[in-house]
């Protein structure tokens, strides 16, 4: 029992930290989530992490709900609720505070500078996320080819990514993967 509540506290602290460092969007915090749940606490295997990420990508909803799957895998429904609360509470509190005072900051120059500064860090973090997820998911020639084909489809065509996810799942069902 105390082990469970300890786990929930650690989940809460970890995702609260992720909430604050998710610059430019929730997926920027994926490297830190992976570091915590796979490497530091070893709650989740590398492959399972990439599969949970895939489930979150395939489902509708904002990217932050990925943490529901992580929390659920670690500690069931209490873990899921703790994770989503931790991931939302700090950043939402900040957003709420900004919303209350925003008309005092009519001048947008500071914002464009901060935004320009955010872009490289966000791209670097997203690239790290992609690297971590791809390394966990691509364990064979076939999976690597699926990743490459999905990249090509999404990057060079306007086809919805759901097509690639569906084809990859179907391919997996046939036993090729």
């Amino acid at each position: 029992m105390s082990g469970q509540s300890n786990t929930l506290l650690v989940l809460l602290a970890n995702f609260a930290a992720c909430s604050l460092i998710a610059v430019g969007g929730a997926n920027s915090a994926v490297p830190e989530m992976h570091r915590q749940v796979v490497e530091v606490h070893q709650w989740i295997g590398d492959r399972t992490f990439s599969e949970l990420f895939a489930i979150a990508q395939a489902a509708p909803g904002p990217n932050v709900v990925f943490v529901v799957l992580l929390g659920h895998y670690v500690a069931g429904i209490p873990g899921a609720l703790t994770a989503i609360f931790g991931m939302c509470a700090p950043s939402c509190t900040i957003a709420y505070g900004v919303a209350r005072v925003i008309d005092r900051f009519k001048d947008a120059r500071w914002r464009t500078v901060i935004q320009a500064g955010l872009v490289p860090v966000t791209i670097g973090l997203m690239a790290a996320s992609a690297f971590i997820v791809a390394r966990a998911a691509d364990r064979s020639a076939v999976t690597f080819l699926i990743t490459a084909a999905t990249f090509a489809l999404v990057y060079w065509t306007r086809v919805t990514p759901l097509v690639a996810l569906g084809l990859a799942a179907a391919l997996g069902l046939t036993g090729v993967v």
Binding site: E51, A54, A130, T150, F151
Partner: peptide, 22 residues
Amino acid sequence: GVFAGLAAAAAGLLVATVAQMF
């Protein structure tokens, strides 16, 4: 196999998103 395939495709999707941003 389904989950392995999904994970590989999701990775490709993320790589493409980063490439577009870049």
